[in-house]
Design a protein around this nucleic acid. Structure first.
Lengths: 141, 141
DNA sequence: TATTGTTATACTCTATAACTATA
DNA sequence: TATAGTTATAGAGTATAACAATA
């Protein structure tokens, strides 16, 4: 399907949003003494205990990168490698208590930015935004 | 302002969208033989000839990084440094013809993804998405 | 044989501090 | 003196290819 002018405009707007949200993440991650990728990784581990391959897929990067990222976060005791009882090739990545707390704080910090930016929006507008955003996620996925 | 549960949910959804769009960019940039940051830089130069400081602000990174990024893209003849006639300390960054074409192709490729994903949405829904996205950008900015 | 995580390598991105040339 | 771009340095992210352990 060839993109129309309207598709281009929508794409530009989505790009700007992506850049804007990235800027927020960048600021937050520095406040937590983490890189953006580390912050993203920690947030992804909420209620997950993925293998290295699964985490690579979630992050959209190669699995060889995950080894180093996990090394660095494990050195700071924010997460742990644990063996998978069903397949001895597999290691699962689990947050430590400290990592759990930091991830929770990071998610709250981002929610606070949302609250401060969109807190005075009418409930219907906020609901529309949530529904449309979810729809875009589904459509892109 | 303290975030409500609803703020948390909205934040989660916006995070997912950010990750999803990032995945699209990641795929596209590899198709163009560029890193994601290089692709973003090229797209930013559409109709702009920023100084190094201005480009750093647009990218949300330190100006020292820009020197290297521009070096690498200049080596590939996608952009050029040009002197600013009004201030001899300043260099302005300008796309070459080749860079212009590549940037155009990249923007079209992203627009094509949008067309393929959201092309069958009703016009009103697309307009709502555009307006709400723009509103979020303004609110966050 | 195929898959999981790892290592080695090379390149890129990122921030800090110190430098130069202009203003 | 202040600012714009650069350099040096160090750490982190990224992809490719080759490898050991396990399936």
């Amino acid at each position: 399907m060839e993109p129309t002018k309207d598709d281009h405009d929508l794409a530009t707007t989505l790009s700007q949003l992506h850049r804007q949200v990235g800027a927020v993440y960048s600021t937050l991650s520095r406040q937590f003494g983490l890189t953006m990728q580390q912050l993203q990784l920690l947030c992804l581990l909420e209620k997950r205990r993925p293998s290295f391959g699964e985490l690579a897929a979630l992050l959209g990067c190669d699995k060889t990168n995950v080894t180093g990222m996990v090394d660095r976060l494990e050195r700071r005791e924010l997460l742990r490698r644990t063996p998978d009882p069903e397949d001895r090739r597999v290691s699962r990545i689990v947050l430590t208590e400290e990592g759990e707390i930091l991830g929770q704080q990071a998610r709250s910090a981002f929610a606070k930015v949302v609250a401060e930016s969109l807190g005075d929006w009418p409930a219907t507008r906020r609901r529309d935004l949530g529904l449309l955003t979810q729809a875009v996620i589904d459509a892109l996925g």
